[in-house]
Every structure is written in C-alpha cells, then in structure tokens.
Amino acid sequence: MATITHEEAHVHAHGPELQHQFETPEQQKEAATLGMWAFLVTEIMLFGGIFMAYIVYRWAFPEAWEESAALLNTPLATVNTVVLLVSSLTVALAVNAAEEGNKRRLLTMLALTMLLGLTFLVIKGYEYSEKFAHCAGAKDPISWITGSDLHESHECLVPGRGFLFPEEHGATGGSHGAAHTASMQSGHQLFFLLYFCATGLHAIHMIIGLGVMSAITIMALRDRFSPTYFTPVEIGGLYWHLIDIIWVFLFPLFYLV
C-alpha cells in the first residue's frame, strides 16, 4: 500500500488552493459553481414563499395594495434600484478583473461594490426610519432623533398593534367610524407586513453579501487569486447578483403598484 496520501501528492502537483478532495482545479471550480447555484435555488425558493404570500394577498386586497403602495417612497427606491444595478455591473467587472489577473482593478471594483451596497443599506435604513418616526409621532427621522416636532400621530405604517393607516388615503373617506376597524385595515397592514418582511430579508442578505465581499477583498489583498484561481470572486459575485435580482422584483411589486 502506498504511504503517500493524496493530499500530499496534490499539494505538490498543484497550488495550495486545490483542496484535498478534488483532482483538478477545474473540477473544484465547477463543483463550487454548481454548489453555489444549488444554494441560489434555495434562496430563490426562500423568497418564493414571501412572493407567494404577496400574490395571494394582492389578489385578495387589490385596493389596499394600491392605496398602501402610494405611501412608500418611490423616488428613494428608484435611486436604490440604480445603486444596485450599478453594483451588479461593478461585481461583474470585478470577476472580469480577477479572470484577467488585474489586482488593482479587482480591488477598485470590490471597493466600489461595497460602497454601493452600503449606500443601498443607508437609503433603505432611511426609508425604514421614516416609517418608524411616523409611528413615534415625528414628521421625519431627524426630528424623531432630536425629539422635536412631536405631534399626535395620524399614521403608523409599521405593522403591529399601533398600525394606523391614514384616513385620507383610504377609499372609504372619513365619515364612518366603523370603517377603521382592524379588519378594514388588514389589507393595508398585510401590505406593510410583507413589505417589511421582504425588504428586511433582502437587507439581511445584503448585509451577508457585504460580509462576503469584505472577505473576498481581504483574500484579494493577500494575493490569493490568480487568473487560474478566482472561484471565491466568482461565487461571491453570483450571490451578489442574486440579491440584485430579488430587488429587481421587489421594486415593481412594492413601489410601482
């Protein structure tokens, strides 16, 4: 029986990036790509459940959907869409740079991507804080933080016991008190619940994506990549693009009703 294990043999034959269980770098790369795609399938189905709930409730409460979507901040979301699409381009260019072995460009693109990702999260955070500020009775997040300009709340779009859909946007008009029971608002509340769940889950993915990008940047700084080995950049890029695709659907579904 041979005494040299495969691992030792492989470390000599190939670079250190080839893990012991693989025969060739191509095999390792293909396995990683396929594995990542299998994971992306999972991610798509994860959001699929939320989209399923969205379809059911939009079909059940079409008016509530239209009235609620009017209260979301579409201009900010449009900016966010642009930000994400640009970040998708920079990621694609980062993979391209890695493929060509251009470390400088790779690092620039990675940095740009992370910057755009952060921008997205900041804008998203502002959007969220607007909603929370209204619940707290403030006009906008800044007056909420400074504590000035507090007044009686007439709008709270955060689902929960305090949820209050503003009357002037409701189809019923303001004369009937009974029209504002929980049930009347259920469609509106479901819209905002799904809005927070879907965009929140998306934001969590974005944060994970930023973590992945930072790890890849560190690896790039340590010269771990070469034109023959850049699998982490590639599969990290796949993950980032998926986040982008999900936003491509969230944007028209929530903001452009």
Partner: peptide, 8 residues
C-alpha cells in the same frame, strides 16, 4: 362604497 363594516 359607503357602508360601514360590522366587524366586531
């Protein structure tokens, strides 16, 4: 659409 809800 003027009828109030009798929910509750």
């Amino acid at each position: 659409a003027v009828m109030p809800s009798y929910q509750g």
